[in-house]
Design a protein around this nucleic acid. Sequence first.
DNA 1: ATGCTTATTGGAACCGGTTCCGAAAAGAAA
DNA 2: TTTCTTTTCGGAACCGGTTCCAATAAGCAT
Lengths: 324, 324
Amino acid sequence: MNIEKISQLAGVSKSTVSRYLNNGSVSQRTKEKIEKIIKTHNYEPNRFAQSLKAKRTNMLGVIVPRVDSFAANETFKGIDKVLHDSGLQSIIYYTNQDINREMEGLKALFNQRVDGIILMATHMTAEHMSIINSVDIPVVIVGQFSEGVHCIIHDDYGAGRKMAEYIARYFKDDLLYLGVSDTDEAVGIKRRDGVLDYFDTLGITCKTAETSFNYSEAFDDIGVIFEASVPEVMICATDNIALAALKHAIERGISVPDELSITGFGGYNTTNIVTPTLTTVRFGYFEAGEKAAESILKLIDGERISMIQHVGNELIINESVDKK
Amino acid sequence: MNIEKISQLAGVSKSTVSRYLNNGSVSQRTKEKIEKIIKTHNYEPNRFAQSLKAKRTNMLGVIVPRVDSFAANETFKGIDKVLHDSGLQSIIYYTNQDINREMEGLKALFNQRVDGIILMATHMTAEHMSIINSVDIPVVIVGQFSEGVHCIIHDDYGAGRKMAEYIARYFKDDLLYLGVSDTDEAVGIKRRDGVLDYFDTLGITCKTAETSFNYSEAFDDIGVIFEASVPEVMICATDNIALAALKHAIERGISVPDELSITGFGGYNTTNIVTPTLTTVRFGYFEAGEKAAESILKLIDGERISMIQHVGNELIINESVDKK
DNA sequence: ATGCTTATTGGAACCGGTTCCGAAAAGAAA
DNA sequence: TTTCTTTTCGGAACCGGTTCCAATAAGCAT
């Protein structure tokens, strides 16, 4: 079934059927004739042929670094909600956290003529930017900041500060911030600085150490840290790290929160499953996804939007901090 | 940049360039000329135009019901590994566990002329089958069984039996199997029967109860169960349910495993994070994904493969069962 | 009925590739 | 050198739509 056959059966020309399908001016009578034929043969136009000449493909590209992360999942769900409600198809390009596949993805999606791309970036590089600039479709980045692109970012600095404020209510001493590498600007730098800067203003000193995003690696690093000494409070840069710390503490018979208070960042589901439940900061991942999708839709429609949009977060007070 | 311009710059015809791009017979000299032009203009053929006439699109459709499930994530990673290594692009269609969107997805992907579809099904219906049969591209289903389609399935019955064998080594009495609705054939029926049938052969009686896949709902149901009486062993149909049981037990001061042994099925990461770690059966989700991808590739190449392929599983002995 | 404006319609070119087919060129055999 | 076979190449049709443009039909006021 193609448009030609439909037009013949309806006794009109190809162009008339095409006009019918799109929006064009077609008389009521021919409209009905065409509709009947299309219904009975349940014809659907070939997307490739359509996209060959038309500008819009009605497909959006989403580049997803990982599927096994709460943050990525929630963000994606937010994106999907908006796009699906708008009747758009999303093509997901999975990169398995490989930065080269991120570039590949940008090119491949552009090559498929998607109308726009949402990139859940892990780490922005100059190469990213050069590809993005060479591509003449809208791109929105979510979760990281980069100059010159539309970004949806979390207030990591504010989250860090919130946590520091909360901790400072109960502790003045023997604190450890367990962060990650500062190649990740949002988590490695902003989040950490939010914590440390606030402590500074109060004259509280807080030691720091560094580990990995990966649960098992963090678990091992924490073992080494505990071997040397166990602080009173451990502020971990992510929930995963905090969960590893908690596991270690329980294994060593260190009581949480009585002897050791632990906090995370993220708001993962697991933080409510473990005992004690984990005090953390919940980020608006879902909301970020929604904003990203809404933004890309606006950009496709030629609207102007601000280059940076912030998404809020919220301190979740649970059981893992000792409120003496 | 299009094939026409490239051909002009290279001083050959469109067809020659096309032949060069595909595989055709082109002399060494013209090959080099064309290659140079393509490189300098870094030209890439328009996929839509290609797919319009050619049969293959080199795109595979993957229908994914959810992103926030360990099983789904692992399966997807297995699929991705194989497809990415084969240089194929995968279009992911996310359904958010909505069975109607599953149908939509089948149609939409077919309409995009993907070469094949992998469906991570939640529950197969007659409607699924009628769509699948009306579509003339290969379809592989992973995780559920359905007559007449190529399926990759887990040995849920065997997993149930394995767990029952293990439990029977330590317990003869006061057992509870906490299952899910039998609208899910694999988990609701097969897994349960694997457990119960084995107990039957030993003359062990095991009570049963039913709850939901959802963590919070399961948590509430378990509260009601515990109100009545707490068994010695609770065999939960999924790790999520087992985690909910564990949480409840800890909140009520029931010691696990001393007073209550708990097991799950799945092999989720979280089972190693909680304390005590959870005894469970790990399914070969990743392997299932790989098999699904390999199968679809073979089917696309016209190979014949068996309609049903089983994936193994493995009992993971952890701390949540009392080995008296 | 006539002239003018507006709504419909069909024809043809086009989008950017692939593929069939016959012609030209190259290579091998005689 | 001639003849036959094999490669290589260009022309043209085609895939299934969209869109421009001119032609026709319809609607309306005079």
